[in-house]
Nucleic acid binder design. Structure first.
Lengths: 338, 338
DNA sequence: TCATAGAATGGAACCGGTTCCATACAGGAG
DNA sequence: CTCCTGTATGGAACCGGTTCCATTCTATGA
C-alpha cells in the first residue's frame, strides 16, 4: 500500500496543504519547511496518486488518439510523432484503434467526453456530415490529423495537401511524356470515410485537365487497400487494348501490387511502365519506388502540439495547417518507351 | 458540465446508492426502480466519471505497455494483438514507447506502480540482473512478452523460442548443403538488453555444431539494427577469401540489407548466395524471402490474456508460455551453386 | 507601542464515484 | 396479532489529491 500525502504530512510534521504546495512548487513555502517535506517524501518513497490528482483537478491528464489500423506503416509513423511529443508532457496517451466501422462510430460518440480525455486527436478519419455537428459541439478540444471535411470550418486540423500531392505525381508523369496514365486507389467511399484517395484523385484529374490530356474512366480502378487487390486491378488495366504507360497508385503499398502486376505481364519498369506511389514508407527506398513523400511523423507531432496549445489557451478561431508534400523521383518512372 | 450520479438520483427520486447499484447491475434493485433510474440516466445523458470510479475502486483500470520503438513492423504487430484484446475489456491501454536507454530505465522504475496501472506488459525488453529483483517485488502484476532472463523464474512471460528458431533457420541451410553460413545480427549487447539476437545466434551455433560444421568467427558480424548497416556488414563478409554461400540474418529487415549487398556484388540469389531472415513481416512475402515466422500478433494477445487472468485470480506460480516458430521457405534459399 | 500588511501554515470542503451500515417495509410463521 | 427474516433503499464515510479560507506569526511604519 503506497503512502499518501497525509502520511507525508505526519512524517514531516506539517499540514497536508503544505505538502501539496511543495509538490506543486508553490513559492509560498519557506525553504526550511520545503526541505523537511522533501526528505519525508524521499523517506516514504511517495509518489502522488495520479487518479486522485485527476479527480481533484477535474482533468483527466489524458489525450485520446483515435486511429485506423495502426498496422499501416503511414499511420504508425504519424503515431510515433504523437507519442514522442506527448511523452515530454504531463499527459498520458490512450489509444483507440479503429478496425471496423462500428468502432469508428462508437469511438466518435464516446471518446470526446470530458470524463475520458482532455483532448482528442482524430487521425486519418474524416468526419461525415452527421459527425461534424456533434464533434463541433464537443466540450473537449479536438484536432484532426490528416482528416478533412469540406464544411469543416469549426475544427482544428493538420492536413496534407493531397490534392497538390496527386497533382504533383500526375504532373511528374506528364512531364516525362506520358499521356496514358492510370490511377489505382482504395475505394473512394467507405464507412470509414477516408478522404485522401479522393483528394489525390482530384489532383490527378486536375493535372490531366491542365495538360489537356483527356480523362478516361477505364484508366481508373478502385479496390480494397492492399497489395493483392492492387495487383489484380493493375492486371486488368494492363490488359486494356490501349494500356496505360504509367500508373499512379494511391499508396506505396498499392504501388507494390502494381509492380507485381507488371512483372506478371513481363513489362519492364520503368521502360514499359512507369509507377509512382504515395507516402514514401520505409520500404520504398529499398525498392527504388518513385513516390510522393508526406510528412507523417511531423503531422502527428504538430497535431499534438496544437492540441496542447489549445488546452493551455483555448484558441479564438479554429487552426488550419497544411503540410507540404515532396516528389521523390527514384527508379520506377521514366519517359515512355518508343 | 457533465451530470453526476447525484443529479441522476435527484431526477429519479432515489438515493445515490441505488443509482450506483443500477449502474453496476446489482440484483438488489426492484424492476420498477431500475426502470426509473435508467430513464433518468438516459434523460441526463449520464456517463459515470471513470476517474472517480478509479479512485473509489482503488484500481486504475489501466494496462501499461512498455514497448521499444514501435516503428519496427514486428513490434507493431505484437501491439496490435495487445490492443485488440484489451479493447474488449474494461481496461484502457497506455503506451510507453522506449526509444532511448534512459527511457527504458525510467519506465522500468516508474510504471509498475499501483498508482499508475493495474498491470504492466513489457514487450521485447529483457530485464537485466538488477532489474529482476525490483520487478519481481512489484505489487503490480507483470507479464513479459518476447523477453526473457536466465534467472527469471519469478515473472510471467510469453516467449518465442528463438533458440529453436535460429536452429531451424541454420538447419534449413545445412540441409540444402551449405557449410559456409554467415550470421548477421544487431549488437548482442545493448543498453536495451534485447535477447532475441543472442538466442538466435545460440541456435545457429547449436545447429552448426550438431552437423559437425566448424564455427568460424569471421562468419559472424553485428551492427546497428536496420538495412543499411546490415548491407555494409554483409558486403564485408562477402569479400572474405572464402566467402559464405548462405547468410542468416537476425531479422527480415536486415535480410533486406543482405540482399542489397548481394546485388552490389553481382551475386545471384539464391544461386550464388542463399539468404534467410526472421519474423516474416509483411514485405517478406512480396520479396519472396525465406524466413522464420513467429507468432507476433498472438504473442501480444496471449500476453494480455495472461495479464487479465492474473488480475482476476493471482496465479500461484509464474506462467511460462512458449510460442512456436515456423520455417517459411520461399525463393531466397537453395542448394549452393556448383 | 500599536496597528497592519504580508508571509507561512493548517485543515475543511470538495471532486464523483463505491460500499457498507442502518432503516423501512412486506410477507410468512407461530 | 406479534415476531422474524429477507428484500429494497437511503446516505455517510471513504478513496487521495487540490484549493481556499482562517489563523498565526513577523516585520514595517507611524
Amino acid at each position: 500500500m503506497p503512502s499518501t500525502i497525509r502520511d507525508v504530512a505526519k512524517q514531516a510534521g506539517v499540514g497536508l496543504g503544505t505538502v501539496s504546495r511543495v509538490i506543486n512548487g508553490s513559492p509560498q513555502v519557506s525553504a526550511e519547511t520545503r526541505e523537511r517535506v522533501l526528505s519525508a517524501i524521499a523517506a516514504l518513497n511517495f509518489i502522488p496518486n495520479p487518479t486522485a490528482r485527476r479527480l481533484s483537478l477535474g482533468k483527466t491528464l489524458t489525450i485520446a488518439a483515435i486511429v485506423p489500423w495502426f498496422t499501416r506503416p503511414a499511420e504508425v509513423e504519424r503515431l510515433r510523432g504523437v507519442e514522442n511529443t506527448l511523452a515530454e508532457s504531463e499527459y498520458d496517451l490512450v489509444l483507440y484503434n479503429v478496425e471496423t466501422p462500428e468502432k469508428r462510430d462508437t469511438y466518435f460518440r464516446d471518446v470526446p467526453r470530458s470524463e475520458r480525455a482532455d483532448g482528442v486527436l482524430i487521425v486519418s478519419l474524416s468526419p461525415r456530415d452527421d459527425d461534424v455537428e456533434q464533434l463541433a459541439h464537443s466540450t473537449v478540444p479536438i484536432v484532426l490529423v490528416d482528416a478533412n471535411h469540406p464544411s469543416l470550418k469549426s475544427l482544428n486540423r493538420v492536413i496534407t495537401d493531397d490534392v497538390a500531392g496527386g497533382y504533383a505525381a500526375t504532373r511528374h508523369l506528364i512531364d516525362l511524356g506520358h499521356t496514358c496514365i492510370g490511377y489505382i486507389s482504395d475505394p473512394l467511399e467507405t464507412p470509414f470515410n477516408f478522404t485522401s484517395s479522393r483528394d489525390r484523385m482530384q489532383g490527378y484529374r486536375q493535372a490531366l485537365t491542365a495538360a489537356g490530356v483527356p480523362i478516361r474512366s477505364d484508366y481508373y480502378r478502385q479496390g480494397e487497400h492492399g497489395r493483392y487487390e492492387a495487383r489484380r486491378l493493375a492486371s486488368e488495366m494492363l490488359q486494356l487494348p490501349e494500356r496505360p504507360t504509367a500508373i499512379f497508385a494511391a499508396s506505396d503499398t498499392q504501388a507494390l501490387g502494381v509492380l507485381e502486376a507488371a512483372q506478371d505481364r513481363n513489362l519492364r519498369v520503368p521502360e514499359d511502365l512507369s509507377v509512382i506511389g504515395y507516402d514514401d514508407i520505409e520500404i520504398s527506398e529499398y525498392i527504388g519506388l518513385t513516390t510522393i513523400r508526406q510528412m507523417l511523423y511531423e503531422s502527428g507531432k504538430r497535431g499534438v502540439e496544437l492540441l496542447l496549445e489549445v488546452l493551455e489557451a483555448p484558441a479564438t478561431k479554429p487552426i488550419y495547417e497544411v503540410l507540404p508534400t515532396e516528389l521523390i523521383a527514384r527508379k520506377t518512372t521514366a519517359a515512355p518507351g518508343i
